[in-house]
Structures are given as C-alpha cells and as structure tokens.
Design a protein around this nucleic acid. Structure first.
Lengths: 334, 334
DNA sequence: CTGAAAGCGCTTACAG
DNA sequence: CTGAAAGCGCTTACAG
C-alpha cells in the first residue's frame, strides 16, 4: 500500500541498510549513493513508518504530559508551551487528563500510557513522592511545578513559597493588614497549596502582622471556588481588606464575587492571585499576581526530559532547578 | 525485557493465537482455556505492546486533533471535552498546534501526524475546502465548528450565523442601535468570522436598523485584539452603544479596555461575545454571550469520527450535524 | 562504505 | 475451538 523502505531501496538500486543509513544520517555514505537514495525518496514520496520504527527501536519520540484538566487555563498554557518546546527538539506530546484522581495519576505513570511514550512530564496533585516512585517505571520522569518534596525525583520547581511571600509582602506594603487567603486546603504542607500558605505566613511574620486562621478559607482551585469562598468569608463577618487567591482563577472568581456584591476593588478590598495566566492582564480591574515562570518551566522541563531520554547532556543524577518568579503589579492591588 | 504474549502462551500452556483470542475477546473460546490465559496474564503482569499491535493491525487507536493553539481558552475547553469523549470509546487524542499557519495545517493533514493517528479532528483556520480535500489522505477526517462550506466533508457545525443573529437581536431588543462588531476580518464569508458577521447583518435588517461599515472593526481573535479594537473605535469618533465581540476573548478584551477608559458597562456600552468559555460567567461584569454547544460538538464529533474509523454505525456518506446554540444573558448586556 | 539476515511483538489468514 | 506460520516495516548487530 504505502511506499516502504524496500521500494526505495529497489528504486535506488541499493540495499535496505543503505536507505536506513541515509534516513538516519549515518556519516559514512558515499555522496553519490546518498544522492541516489534521496532522489528515490523524493520521487516515490516515501515517509518512514513511525510505528515500525518504534517497534524496532523501542523509542516512540513521544513524551507524555499528565495534568489535571486542559480546561484549566494555567495547564492549557503550560501544555501549549511544552508542546512547542518539545516540537523544536523533534518530539510530540501526548496529554493525559488525571482529573486530580490518584488512580488516574497512577495509571498514567505505568501501563499503556507509559508504553506509548519515551518519558513523562507529570504534574502530581494526588500522589506523593513515595507513591510516584512506587508507581513509576524506569523511563525518565520529570515533575512540574507542584512541589513534591523528594530528593530522588527530577523536577522543575515553582518558587511557591518565596513567590507567595512576595505577593503577600506587596499587599502588606500597600497598607493592607487583614489579608484573606483563598484556596488553602486541608493539612497539605508540601503541595503548591501548602507552600504558598507558608510563604504567606512568613511574609506576615516578617512584617509583624499576626496570623489569623479565620482569614484562611479553603476552596477548590476554580473560579466558582473563589467566588464561593468570598461568600463564606463575608458571611463569617470576619474583617478583611485584601484577598490572596492561591491561584489566578480563584482570585478572579473572588474578584467577580466582590464586585457583584458592590465592593470596590482595590479601594475596599485588594485582590491578588498566583500564576499570571493570560486572562489576568485583561481582567477588570486587571489582576495583580505572580508569574511562576511558565515558559522557563516548560523549556527547562523539555530539555531535561529529552536529555534523560536520549542519555545526553551533562546532567546531575537528579536535577531540581527552580524557575524565576516575577511579581506583576496591576490594578486589583496596586 | 518486558513480558510478551509468548511468555503468557508458555505460562498458560497454549499457543500465541489463543492468547491473542483472549485479549481480543474472541467469542468462541473454551471458558477453561480463557481462564488459564487470564491467570497467566495476571500473574506475569502482561501488558500488550501497543506499538507492535499498531504495526500489525494498521490501527493506532489514536485520533489527531489539529487546532490553532491550546492556550486559547475555547480550544482548550473543546480539547478537554474531546479527550474525555474519546477516552470513553477507548481512543487517545494527540493534539497538534497549527498556529493558524496554512503550511502547518497542511502538514498535519498528511505526513507523519496523519500516520500516527486513525482519524483526524480538524479546526481549519487557514485552509479552505479544496485545500483540505487535496491535502487530506484517505483516513477519516471530521471538521469542527469553523465552517468550511463543502458538501464533501464531514463536519460538526456551530450555528455561527443564527447564533450571531440571536446575540445581535438581543442587543437590539434591549434598545441598542449602534452595535460595533469586533473581529470581523478581511473578506471572509464562509469562516466563523464571515458567518457571524452575516448573522449580525441579518439581525440588523430584520429589525430595521441600518448597517454601518464604520462599526465593523477588524482585529485578531485575542484579548489584546479586542482591547486595541475598542481603542481604534473610540479614536475614530464613531458613536456606538454596544460591542459584539466575535468571540469571547475579543469581547473580554474590549470590556477591559472600556472599563479602563471609564465607560460603564452595560450602562454606557453593552458588551456581548461568542463561545461561552468558562471565564465568561466570572468576568466582571459577567459576559453575555452565546454557547455554541461545545460539549455536544465534542461528543458528536467523537462518535462520528470513531464510527468512520471503525466502519461502524449507520452513517450517511457525509454528515454535517449542527450543534444547538443557546444565548447566555448576563450582566454585560442584560 | 554497503549487504544479507534476524527480529521487535503483535495480528491475521489459513488449516484442522 | 486452537495451532503453526507468515509478515507488518523498520533497525540493528554482524560481516565483509
């Protein structure tokens, strides 16, 4: 049916191996031979069968990306960046949505998804370091952003703690004293969640402001979570003059709810987020937030994972680089 | 290295074919035999090698999805829905970003991306019907949303024209008479672009309002495009009392710019969009828009494409179903 | 520098 | 209902 390497070999009057050599840029080929083969390829419109190549070579040239859900803006933007960076190095990216379920995450670390890919980017939300190591096979794995404290795993880190402290310090610097934190859930102390909360507390302490648990409101990291958290906060009667959403969509949901209820932002309440998604710049008022260095994270993760897959690059046994963060001061908290 | 079917066959004391039969749910297997094989599979932790299966069967169980960029919220949400629907039917989705480039779109329709997938979802932005038919191979192809007028191609349609007319009629019904359209570009009359503009004109005509080309502002379908379009509109001195962004991000960019400049929405200017992305509900003010039926589009497209791939289902030669749209009236244009 | 052969792990006719 | 054999289209030692 399709044109195969055999057809090319016949047309060029050489052996299969020679065609393979040309395709794989083997160095020592007589120029005339190479020329003949390339002409036959062009004439026949030959394209390598990637499946056959994969079966034989054991490499698929695909990388897996396990994340919660593509409809979350931060993940969509990160996925887009990763796909572009991977494409520049000749790899495709196969995305798997985990819906934050431990079983889905575990399935993606092993099983068929793993077999289809040469290496994995993983944004763990349900699984911890031990779980990950237990579930993951021998193929390269790079964790992204969501911090899992484990010295055995490659990961590209967001400076969750310092960046959250910077946002909090900025709010304090503008005179706010009662800063509610939205999206700080359960007892987590290692996930983004917990680390950002720690950053918040450090900044309070450094500025001599007392920590008040009544200002810490758990909620899902979605728009409606942020909106609902504000409602609960208002219903509680606790006073506050600023809101720090632990990610942008929470902050944007909170912002929406505050405006709906007639509060002025930033006059009555300042609002800040975390992630610097595209939308943050165009919210009304635009959202003060912190950029975790998404594009840098994507680029570093891609380079690290592909170097691992190819066994190239001068790499330490385990690498855990941190991306640079940057405060983005906008209207919602000037 | 990994456990193969041969290992399973040996452990179960049967032939390779019998193992294959069990795995592929061949009907006529003696229960005892099946039992033995299943036990061997469980004991050895056997997992099929999908690459080998693909090479032999010619099927990859992957579907391609070609879209402009995952960082665009509507596409990210659509991709998420498609991946979920496909997963329910046992297929994975490989996403390819075209960056709106004709050459990228063409490459995705043929070449290696095509070889890796059994069928393709394609949101064409640069290529027309003839181009698509010329470039696409014989594998099934389903176009999504962005209308390409061509009776030869399967597609799941957004009711661009009627939905745009409904939004416009809603604005007219609330007393607006000078409705600016943002994002209406070049002479396009078949893309979403052109069709939405036609819907707008129809609604004006049906309501006896004259069409004024000075109210039609071209811009990129991004947030900054919408913001900039509003700036140009204001600079032109043309009067307007409403803005219809041809998609939500354009409308949200416009909304932002209007508020920045001190206009009150909806009092001074009403704003409406198209897409009903998640963000529309939580914008401030929340955005009036039209839902094109994203989840329905995803489900229908997945069912159609997989039926084509599997040669099953009672299907017409060409199908072009239209998804139901629904007006979402919110604060920005009550 | 190039060739002939083996084999990656499956599925698929073909028998029986 | 099950088996033995061929073969999908490549790459990879192994020769020469």
């Amino acid at each position: 049916m399709a044109v195969t390497m055999n057809d090319v070999a016949r047309a060029a009057g050489v052996s299969l191996k020679t065609v393979s050599n040309v395709i794989n840029n083997y160095e020592f080929i007589r120029p005339a031979t190479k020329q003949k083969v390339l002409e036959a390829i062009a004439e026949l419109g030959y394209e390598a069968n990637l499946t056959a190549r994969s079966l034989r070579s054991g490499k698929t040239n695909m990388l897996g990306l396990v994340l919660s859900d593509l409809s979350v803006p931060y993940y969509a933007e990160l996925a887009s960046d990763i796909m572009k960076a991977a494409s520049n190095r000749g790899y495709r990216v196969l995305v798997e949505q985990s819906a934050n379920q431990a079983e889905h995450e575990r399935a993606a670390l092993q099983g068929q998804f793993r077999n289809l890919t040469d290496g994995l980017f993983f944004i763990p939300l349900a699984l911890g370091g031990d779980d990950i190591i237990a579930a993951a096979g021998k193929k390269p794995l790079v964790l992204l952003g969501e911090f899992v404290e484990d010295p055995r795993l490659d990961m590209v880190l967001i400076q969750n703690q310092d960046a959250a402290a910077a946002v909090t310090a900025h709010l304090l610097g503008s005179g706010r004293r009662r800063i509610a934190v939205l999206g700080a859930n359960d007892g987590d102390t290692t996930g983004s969640n917990g680390l950002r909360l720690i950053g918040y507390r450090h900044a309070l302490k450094a500025n001599g402001v007392e920590y008040d648990p009544a200002l810490v409101i758990p909620c899902g990291w979605r728009r409606d979570g942020g909106a609902e958290a504000v409602s609960r906060l208002l219903a509680s009667g606790v006073e506050f003059d600023a809101v720090f959403g632990l990610n942008d969509v929470v902050a944007l949901g909170a912002l929406h709810e505050l405006l709906v209820r007639g509060y002025s932002v930033p006059d009555d309440v300042a609002v800040a987020g975390f992630d610097d998604i595209d939308e943050a710049r165009f919210a009304s008022p635009s959202l003060t937030t912190v950029s975790p260095g998404r594009t840098e994270i994507a680029q570093r993760a891609v380079d690290l994972l592909i170097d691992r897959v190819e066994g190239k690059g001068e790499r330490a046994d385990v690498e855990q680089p941190r991306a640079e963060y940057a405060l983005r001061i906008r209207q919602s908290a000037p």
